[in-house]
């Protein structure tokens, strides 16, 4: 550590790296990935259950509190994980600075909108409106 600096080495390391956020992206990508292993398997079961149900049955299945909670958890994890993954794809392949910022923002906004739309839909289903 330089004598003229009072910052600890940890303080200097934090926020470094090309993304200026250290390992945060990596960590959250892994956390959402771990969450999605059971949630995705559960969602496949949910989607398969919808096949033989009519509208009322499908609505009732999604409205069950446990299913509604798991749907919200699945949706939030999916859009969060998708945004993190697409961010890396754009960082790798889009090299024009202006276009990169626009596409990064577009992906972030679309993912948030998708998540909000899904959560609102599940809330409407669960509350029966």
């Amino acid at each position: 550590m330089n004598d003229k600096h009072l910052r600890t080495p940890l303080k200097n390391v934090r926020g470094l790296g090309p993304a200026r956020s250290g390992t945060h992206h990596f960590t959250v990508q892994r956390i959402t990935a771990v969450a999605l292993v059971p949630l995705a398997l559960w969602f496949v079961w949910f989607a398969l259950s919808l096949i033989h149900l009519d509208y009322a049955g499908a609505h009732a299945l999604a409205a069950r509190p446990l299913n509604a909670v798991l749907l919200v958890a699945f949706v939030l994890s999916v859009f969060w994980h998708a945004q993190l993954g697409l961010q890396v794809v754009i960082e790798d392949y889009v090299h024009r600075p202006g276009l990169e910022i626009v596409s990064q923002l577009a992906v972030k906004f679309l993912c948030v909108l998708g998540a909000l739309a899904c959560v609102l839909a599940v809330v409407r289903i669960a509350l029966g409106s």
Binding site: H59, V89, I125
Partner: peptide, 27 residues
């Protein structure tokens, strides 16, 4: 596959939104 799945979330939104909207939208 990750990019394809991200695109597939459009269907997820459609499914849940239509389930909330009513029988015609779901059909």
């Amino acid at each position: 596959a990750g990019i394809a799945l991200a695109a597939g979330t459009v269907l997820l939104v459609c499914l849940l939104a239509s389930l909330a909207a009513g029988p015609e939208a779901y059909a």
